[in-house]
């Protein structure tokens, strides 16, 4: 344990340095992919708070992502002069509200009906997006021009790759750090209790409905924040952001990466982003390949990539200790 600490600190230091230096090391296109990876990391991590930590399988996470993405775009277009951070904040707030509404309707529903209803709600949000095209732009989507962010000492322009990268890294990095610490907080502990034994929790004096609702609002807000940055990054948002396809995407990312640990979904988000980029250059049917990969993982590697990694590491560790006399 003691010898591992400085080593992991060194790793973290190196990773931090690489993240800060990335805009100087990577060509613009690669930097954009990394930025997108960070956005989807937060989306996948928020999803895993439901799936991994609370044990709730949702098929509707894109509704929060989409609400955040659209609310941000609508604020940017409708309120001239608004700062892009405020627009992202309002997008997050809208997603929090969506979490509150959907969460309170789903309070008494668990297990399979929960999975089914989240999908139905996602379909509802998508249908609203389609019908209400004066607000969402319908099939055309909405173009936005994210305004420059004046921070006093420096001015960041979200339209420029490196500036957008740093903005994303700082804001979403903070959110990711917060998620990482989340399980250790009192609320994180309550969520674990909820997953393990909801009945006992109630007999211990916890109002589990409140815990579930708070969790829903919380993950809704986080997904909404990711959606807001998705809009800022692309300077555009379409119905794609709120579709079942987007839900499938976050599900694939989270599951491919592994639901058992915090880094799993982050790994999955980057993996998915890069593989999609690679495959979509080769073939139009990359989604089919992703789907087959997903089914393969469900069948043969339910722990995801991080589970595979841990399995290999522990096997190596075992053979190492075994070879020592």
């Amino acid at each position: 344990m003691t010898s591992q600490r400085p080593r992991s600190l060194a790793w973290m230091g190196a990773a931090a340095a690489a993240l800060v230096a990335a805009p100087y090391l990577l060509p613009p296109y690669q930097l954009r992919l990394v930025t997108e990876g960070i956005v989807f990391s937060l989306f996948a991590v928020s999803y895993n708070l439901l799936l991994g930590h609370a044990g709730l399988l949702s098929f509707g996470h894109a509704m929060f992502f989409g609400v955040g993405a659209f609310a941000t775009a609508i604020c940017l277009n409708g309120l001239p002069g608004i700062s892009c951070l405020l627009a992202a904040g309002l997008g997050t707030l809208a997603a929090l509200l969506a979490g509150l509404v959907v969460g309170s309707l789903l309070l008494r529903v668990k297990g399979t009906p929960f999975a089914l209803l989240t999908l139905a709600f996602n379909a509802l949000f998508f249908a609203i997006g389609v019908k209400w095209h004066t607000l969402t732009g319908g099939d055309d989507g909405l173009n936005v021009v994210p305004p420059k962010l004046n921070l006093g000492l420096l001015i960041l322009d979200p339209g420029k790759g490196p500036d957008m990268y740093y903005l994303t890294l700082i804001v979403l990095g903070a959110a990711l750090f917060f998620c990482w610490r989340f399980t250790a907080t009192a609320m994180g502990h309550s969520v674990l209790l909820l997953r393990e034994n909801e009945e006992r929790m109630r007999f211990l004096g916890y109002n589990t409905n409140v815990t579930r609702l708070m969790l829903f609002v919380f993950v809704g807000g986080l997904a909404g924040l990711a959606g807001s940055f998705y809009t800022l990054l692309n300077a555009f948002v379409s119905l794609d952001a709120i579709s079942i396809d987007m839900t499938t995407k976050v599900l694939l990312m989270t599951f491919l990466g592994g639901t058992g640990s915090f880094p799993g979904p982050v790994l999955g988000a980057f993996f998915y982003t890069y593989v999609q980029d690679y495959l979509s250059n080769l073939t139009d049917n990359w989604q089919l390949i992703m789907g087959v990969l997903f089914i393969g993982m469900v069948l043969f590697a339910p722990g995801g990539l991080s589970g595979l990694g841990q399995g290999i590491a522990s096997r190596l560790g075992r053979s190492k200790t075994a070879s020592q006399p």
Binding site: G55, L57, L251, Q287, G291, I295, L299
Partner: peptide
């Protein structure tokens, strides 16, 4: 259970 649902969902996607 979760894996059964995930499987059928993945199948729908494919």
């Amino acid at each position: 259970h979760v894996h059964e649902l995930l499987l059928t969902f993945g199948l729908a996607y494919i």
